[in-house]
């Protein structure tokens, strides 16, 4: 379970946009529903590799806690990345993006990477929000944009991994203070010094890989 970095993500967006399904799809690829079985989960973790380094993603779904201001507040602050999800078949979920984004910007640390996700891209026939609209919104607010389908797994990997890449780049640029765990980034056990990072990360990654097969 050794990793170079641990990134904490949150998933935000209206209810029913498929947040927990995205999460499960990413952390547990096996659940690719061949038939109508929507299945999700509120928490998941998965290891990915970026730049030869093992990076663990911990994803927390904030669903069901909107009633409590203290909870949403804290969630935002503790995350390094956020997936802001809307449902391309429901216009109102797109319309609420501004509110979500305002909330996120207000409570999160300014470095948090936010990715805009238009989910349910498999339901092309019922589409209400054009892809261009999503792109325009993302451009306007400086977000990365992607349309995904938790059902077919299209772009799900990319969504999470691209976000991680962006966070990773920010770390390399020194934007994130990685020693401050309040940012939602944690350095792995073997990653104590910045200098020893590369060797340690790669070695541990290899070991972990061996352990699993």
């Amino acid at each position: 379970m050794a990793y170079a970095y641990l990134f904490k993500y949150i998933i935000i967006g209206d209810t029913g946009v498929g947040k927990s399904c995205l999460l499960l799809q990413f952390t547990d690829k096996r659940f690719q529903p061949v038939h109508d079985l929507t299945i999700g989960v509120e928490f998941g973790a998965r290891m990915i590799t970026i730049d030869g380094k093992q990076i663990k993603l911990q994803i927390w779904d904030t669903a069901g806690q909107e009633a409590f201001r203290s909870i949403t507040r804290s969630y935002y602050r503790g995350a390094a990345g956020a997936l802001l999800v809307y449902d391309i078949t429901r216009r109102e979920t797109f319309n609420h993006l501004t509110t979500w984004l305002e909330d996120a910007r207000q409570h999160s640390n300014s470095n948090m990477v936010i990715m805009l996700i238009g989910n349910k891209s498999d339901l092309e026939s019922r589409r209400e929000v054009k892809k261009e609209e999503g792109e325009a919104f993302a451009r306007e607010h400086g977000l990365v944009f992607m349309e995904t389908s938790a059902k077919t797994a299209a772009n799900v990997e990319e969504a999470f991994i691209n976000t991680a890449k962006e966070i990773y780049e920010k770390i390399q640029e020194g934007v994130f203070d990685i020693n401050n765990e309040a940012n939602g980034i944690k350095i792995g056990p073997q990653h104590s010094t910045a200098g020893g990072a590369k060797a340690g990360g790669a070695g541990a990654g290899g070991a972990a890989g061996g352990g699993c097969c």
């Binding site: 904490k8 409590f68 804290s74 503790g78």
Partner: peptide, 13 residues
Amino acid sequence: ESMVRIAVRTLTL
């Protein structure tokens, strides 16, 4: 771990 603390608070509420 902040996420754990948040989960506890959510649970209590």
